[in-house]
Nucleic acid binder design. Sequence first.
DNA 1: GCCGTTTTCGGCCCGACTGTTTTCAGTCG
Length: 591
Amino acid sequence: MVVTNEQLADIFEKMATLLEIKGDSVFKIRAYRRAGRTIENLSVSLENCVRDKEDLKQIPGIGKAINDKIYEYVETGRISVYDKLVEELPQGILTLMTVPSIGPKTAVLISNELDVTSLEELEQAILDNQLAGVNGIGKKTSENILRNLQELRTKDRRTPIAVALPLAESIIRRLESACEEPVNLYPVGSLRRWEETIGDIDIVCISSNPSSVSKAIVGFEEVSDVLVQGDKKTSVVLESGIQLDLRVADSKSLGSMLQYFTGSQQHNIRLREYANRKGLSVNEYGITNDSTGTLETFADEESFYNRLGLQYVPPELRVGINEISMAEKYILPQLIQENDLNGDLHIHTDWSDGRDSMEEMIKTAVELGYEYMAITDHSAGLGVAHGLSIDRLETHINNLHELQEKFAIRILCGSEVDIRADGSLDYPDEILDKLDVVVASVHSAMGQDSDKMTHRLIRAMNHKSVTMIGHLSTRIIGHRPSITFDMEQILLAAKSSGTALEINASPERLDLKDTHANLAKEFGIPLVLNTDSHNVDGFHNRRYGIAVARRAWCEPRHVLNTLPLSRFIEYVSAPKPERNEIFVANWPGVD
DNA sequence: GCCGTTTTCGGCCCGACTGTTTTCAGTCG
């Protein structure tokens, strides 16, 4: 049986909920929940750790009890304590709690009074007027539950960041122009932490007339429902099903507000625990000295963190694992930024399935200030993408050489070459030898079992012409799951063969994902941040790829295409086994 | 259940809003 971290995270999250229903200690519940979140964000596979007999207690938030339960689950596929909890609690109670506004207390109440075990039965019971009137539940609560229940069915729980971010940006622009008084709006929450999917759009607002902002948002055409409208907080649901929370702040405490609403919740809990140990209490308004009772406010986040004796923690790192203890020692990484990139090495044109011409794509790369780029149209095997036959590829290469004369950017000849089912490449060696950059990717036979897929990928990596593996997992967020393979073997092979791994910034891919990119970085494998652009707008997706790299704790030195041109050329010109050494040597003075 | 430069026991983040309550419990983030 394969055990994924997601399964383990899910089971501990469920356990926390079951204990909540049972009315167990809130601290025990919090410990399980925290363990679940930690496991979710882990880059190593716990299954592998168990097989290697590693001590999981060194992971923050995992002690003896949870360590043993993870071992039990990996070894037997069950956790007996969990099974017992499920058995002793009413059937279907976890399902009831998936409805917003139904917490543990309400779930127990509904379960006891109405004898329902599914959402369909609950809906019917409410429609039959059985819920309103049950102790503590009035007409309004009953209506709320019904509405939340029905909404749950129609909307996806989380929205991809590439949908949520442009939407938030547009709302912010429109709110700014809709208000008469000057207003400052800041996206916070999972959006600001650049998570790959977003729960709600959270915005912090500063204005001399906050109620006018609240009024403006409620009046927007696409608002389908108003959930909360108070002095400090307004929540609405948009037609798309996305919830938007607006929170009013005072400019003198903006730093604390941004910090608090950026989260993550887990980070904030850790931060407040840390502050408590120093005799300070933290809330969204500032920091209170426990002995004097005086509240100190902060106009920006940096001074807020510094007051606590901490280095500023970039939002992408605020996950609540070990960033606070590292900030305490001032050893957080200097994360990569968009302008660190000097090139893009995965670009399609209208020669294969791209929309824009080579000239247009090159011009855009020049405008971005890049020193180099690789044009990498598809290989012949990918018929649907109008892949290039050998003859067309040779013409393509000649055309690129001619174009090179006209542009002040180094244009590398490349290809995104299909990795066939057996791990061979879609072009013969003679033509691959003529290319500067080869992105090898899986586009077919994605259902292979883990062994077969692992061997297939390793065979491709061992090819002397393959510069990097493109979008390793091939997942499409929300549509297609990752292919299955043994990550550790892939990383070992990438390292020994001198093959780089791509972070594909295309927002529906984000592949490698953050935890895998982090693992690759730890293995010392060069990462390449590519947009996989199919038109000129595609280049701007690099911000999503940068977010993945930042969430993976990457500095510029971990990413190959931050190298200046001469050093990058030195890297790709060297035989593969020598490349890792060159990559490391090209960043002198860092360990 | 986890954790510790005060601790191996005794702590454990903090506030806004709603609905149904006449003072607060439940939920959410």
